[in-house]
């Protein structure tokens, strides 16, 4: 199952194939391997698949992805309730 949204690298530890990161998805974090994205630095936006970061997105691109989500109306704050229909 592919994960659509990018996360942000918040902690990096280890080296080479053992380079790991804590990646933040708006308040939740997972540990992923950075072995496939050796250039990923702290605060980088990454796509994650099965415990591995598979690509680095530049900030503008990452925000574009978020904009997509916004146009879908999906990632707003808590929506105002629908008023009761007559």
């Amino acid at each position: 199952m592919c994960l659509a949204v990018p996360g942000q690298v918040k902690e990096v530890y280890g080296e080479g194939l053992e380079r790991l990161a804590k990646v933040d998805f708006q308040g939740s974090r997972v540990e992923v391997s950075l072995a496939m994205v050796p250039d990923a630095q702290l605060d980088a936006w990454v796509l994650v698949h099965a415990g591995y970061a598979i690509e680095v997105l530049d900030e503008r691109e990452a925000r574009e992805t978020w904009d997509y989500l916004k146009t879908a109306g999906l990632y707003d704050e808590i929506p105002p309730a629908l008023e009761p229909k007559p």
Binding site: L3, V5, G27, S28, V30
Partner: peptide, 20 residues
């Protein structure tokens, strides 16, 4: 049910998405 009317907080949305 209207998806847009669900009181989903961003953190719940993202955590759920992240976990599939």
């Amino acid at each position: 049910i209207e998806e847009r009317a669900l009181p989903l907080s961003p953190i719940v949305r993202h955590a759920s998405e992240m976990l599939g």
